[in-house]
């Protein structure tokens, strides 16, 4: 078992730098999710840990061992690919046994491990089938099986669930989590789905344009986002951002409304989560409704801050009918106001 340390990791393709110095310390047995929009460098980072991409600058350590110059095979890792990457000409059993055979394990040991993994993943009935005779979900399990029979120090996942339907995705998500806890293996998991990230990770790294914006537990990221990017990326529906001015312990909105709370002075961006807006007829935040989305358990009211063009969304519990142009009042607890400076960094 081993932790992973990324030390000022950089990656360039030709002249273009795509990772600009990523730092992280991942503890032994921890489940870390790397999340971010398409093209931000998630796969590149993961593939560098795997040894499939060279390191341009910086250092990767797996369990105290610098692995920069090591081949993938020497790093004692296993990876699950988005397209599963099963060997099409081999049966499920041969797929899982391939890595063990190369390591020269005795046949009985290989059979024992493959069958053990097959039992855990409930794919025992398919052991003699070829990958093309399996459904997407079953292939996914085989890919997992191939990773766990090796008993590696680290699991790497690159969007392993994105080819599955929504229901299966939720189920496999839980299974991956359970399996990882049971085996106690360090895992790094890449996804662009923030719900997947929040539910799976012990900690999340939010990657944006080749930089780590924040690295912390899901709750930390939700409650104290360090940048507007993280604030907007984590949480659904997304956070509202309103231009505002901070002065003397108050935040003044564009339309002159005053909200108690906040620190600092000068122009700021105020971040408010839709679910933190509390219906309050006399409240200072006036939302002029455009339309409402009924989700059953809650209602999303879309509109603008009264007297401005700034978009504002509020989540109300239960169902509520809203007419266009109706003005609703809201208030917000000072602890749930997020203030950001001109560069998008958190104040206070």
């Amino acid at each position: 078992m081993a932790g992973i340390v990324l030390d000022k990791l950089k990656k360039s393709y030709g002249g273009t730098e795509v990772l600009h110095g990523v730092n992280a310390e991942i503890a032994d047995g921890e489940f870390v999710v790397i999340v971010g929009p398409s093209g931000c460098g998630k796969s590149t980072l993961l593939r560098m840990i795997a040894g499939l991409e060279s390191v341009t600058e910086g250092e990767i350590r797996i369990g105290e061992r610098v692995v920069n110059g090591l081949e993938p095979a020497q790093r004692d890792i296993a990876m699950v690919f988005q397209n599963y990457a099963l060997y099409p000409h081999m049966s499920v059993r041969q797929n899982m046994a391939y890595g063990l055979k190369i390591r020269g394990l005795p046949k009985e040991e290989i059979d024992r491990r493959v069958e053990e993994a097959a039992d855990i993943l409930e794919i025992r009935d398919y052991l003699e089938r070829k990958p093309r005779q399996l459904s997407g979900g079953q292939r996914q399990r085989v890919a997992m099986g191939r990773a766990i029979v090796r008993k590696p120090q680290v699991f790497l996942f690159d969007e392993p669930l994105s080819n599955l339907d929504a229901k299966l995705r939720v189920q496999m998500r839980l299974e991956i989590r359970r399996l990882q806890k049971r085996l106690g293996v360090t895992a790094v998991y890449v996804t662009h789905d923030q719900v997947e990230a929040m539910t799976l990770g012990d900690r999340l790294m939010v990657l944006n344009g080749g930089r780590s914006e924040q690295f912390g537990t899901p709750i930390e990221l939700y409650e104290r986002p360090q940048t507007t990017f993280v604030a907007g990326f984590i949480g659904s529906p997304a956070m509202n951002f309103l231009p505002a001015t901070a002065e003397g312990g108050e935040v003044v909105l564009e339309n002159g409304a005053r909200l108690p709370g906040g620190t600092g002075a000068g122009r700021v961006r105020l971040g408010l989560r839709p679910e933190h807006l509390l219906a309050d007829d006399g409240g200072p935040i006036r939302l002029q409704a455009i339309l409402a989305e009924q989700l059953g358990a809650s209602t999303l009211v879309h509109g603008t801050l009264e007297g401005t063009d700034s978009a504002l969304v509020a989540a109300l519990p239960g169902t509520r009918a809203v007419t266009e142009g109706e003005v609703l009042g809201f208030s917000v607890a000072p602890a749930q106001m997020h203030l950001f400076d001109g560069e998008g960094r958190r104040i206070g």
Partner: peptide, 8 residues
């Protein structure tokens, strides 16, 4: 790549 990771 999977084969490379498997040690081949």
């Amino acid at each position: 790549e999977a084969a490379a990771i498997d040690g081949a």
